[in-house]
Structure formats: C-alpha cells, structure tokens
Computed example of a mutant assay.
Amino acid sequence: MRVYCSYSDSELAFLLTQGDELAFTEIYNRFYGLLFIHANKRLNDDEEAKDVLHQLFESLWVKRLQVAPDGNLSAYLYTAVRNRVLDVFAHQKVESKYIDSLQDYIDQDHVSTDYMVREKQMALLIEQEIDALPPKMREIFILSRKENKSHKEIALELGLSELTVKTQVKNALRILKSRLGVVIYVVFLLKTYR
C-alpha cells in the first residue's frame, strides 16, 4: 500500500495525471491550508477564498492531464490561485461598474421624471393664470400666443382695431408676469416662441 504523504510534489503530480484519486486527495490536504491563507490575504473574505479554492481543485481534477508531471506543483497551484483572485477582482469591478451605471440611470430617470412633473405643474399654473384673465383679453391673448395670429389677423377676426389688440396682449403679458413671477413668465415666453 502506498503512503502518499511521503511522496514528493512531482511524484504526486505524476500520479494525478494518471487519474490517481488518492494522489489528488494528498495534494488537496497538503496545499489547501496554505493556498487558503494566500487567497484570503488578497480577498479579505473567507467565503470568497473558499470558493476560489473549490473552483481551483475542481479544475485541477478536470484538467489533470494538463498538469506537467515533472513541473513545480506548488508554483502551478499558487499561480492558479493568483489568476482566480484576479478574476474575482475583475468580476467585482465589472459588477461595480454595472451597479454604478444602473444607479446613474435611475438617478437621471428620477431627475427627468422630476423635471417632467415640474414642467406639467408649471404649464398648469400658466393655464390657470391665462384662464383668470378678463374674457376679451384672454380671447385675444390665446389667438396671439397659442394660435400665433398677428395683431392684424386678430383685429379683423374680432372686429377690433390693431391698437386695441396690441394693448390687450401687452396688458395680458404684464398681468401674467406679475402673477407668475419672472422665472415662470420667461419659461412661458420661451415655450410659446419655440
């Protein structure tokens, strides 16, 4: 009966390539503790380090034919752990970027939704103030600003002088400016002249 704990690393590596499960078990027992410390030192996470080693030993058994039987088994395993730790960091970085971009999207969507709500509120406020104008003034103002008719066209349509139309529009704008405040008034003007 073979005593695997007395075998050198290269002898165990050779037996591993032959599919010897006991050699694999000896390699696992011999290196697990040191490799765990090595992985955990970099990852700072016991569970993550255990996952890395679980994947490493699983891969070692599956790819046992690729292990160089006369190579340095210890160096092979440490390199494999280092590569897997780097994979974990790369995955975390991608995950973090994804979460950041998702958060940016949510934030922008929130800002855009907030803006749309405010814009609707502002439009409603403007409409209410236009509706509160005296009836004739309101009619002239709507024809001028919403239907984009000239003072001359409005005068002809309503049977008024151009000067009356001009004065009514001017008075409507003055009233709206005082009721809405300068900022909302300017926004209103920008929207009507787009």
Rank of each mutant, 00 (worst) to 15 (best):
V3K: 06
C5H: 12
C5E: 13
D9W: 04
S10N: 06
F14C: 11
G19S: 08
G19A: 09
D20K: 09
L22K: 14
A23T: 04
A23I: 04
A23M: 04
I27S: 01
Y28A: 01
Y28T: 02
N29V: 05
N29Q: 08
Y32W: 13
L34P: 13
L34A: 15
F36M: 14
H38S: 10
A39Q: 04
A39I: 03
N40T: 03
N44K: 09
D46V: 03
D46K: 06
V52Q: 01
H54R: 07
H54P: 02
H54M: 08
L56I: 05
S59R: 09
L60Y: 03
R64P: 07
R64Y: 09
R64W: 10
L65T: 15
Q66A: 14
V67R: 08
A68F: 10
A68G: 11
P69C: 09
D70P: 02
D70L: 13
D70T: 14
L73T: 04
S74K: 09
S74R: 13
Y76I: 03
L77V: 02
L77C: 04
A80H: 05
V88Q: 04
Q92M: 11
K93T: 11
V94M: 12
E95C: 14
S96Y: 08
K97H: 11
K97L: 15
D100Y: 09
L102Q: 11
I106A: 09
D107E: 12
Q108C: 04
V111E: 12
V111R: 10
D114F: 12
Y115G: 05
M116F: 14
V117L: 13
E119H: 15
E119S: 09
E119N: 10
K120V: 05
Q121I: 07
I126E: 00
D131Q: 08
D131H: 07
L133V: 01
P134T: 04
P134K: 12
K136Q: 13
K146D: 13
E147Q: 15
N148T: 10
K149M: 15
K152I: 01
A155L: 03
L156W: 07
E157P: 02
L158P: 05
T164K: 04
T167I: 08
I175P: 00
I175Q: 04
G181P: 03
V182E: 08
I184L: 06
I184M: 06
V186T: 06
F188T: 00
T192Y: 00
R194I: 00
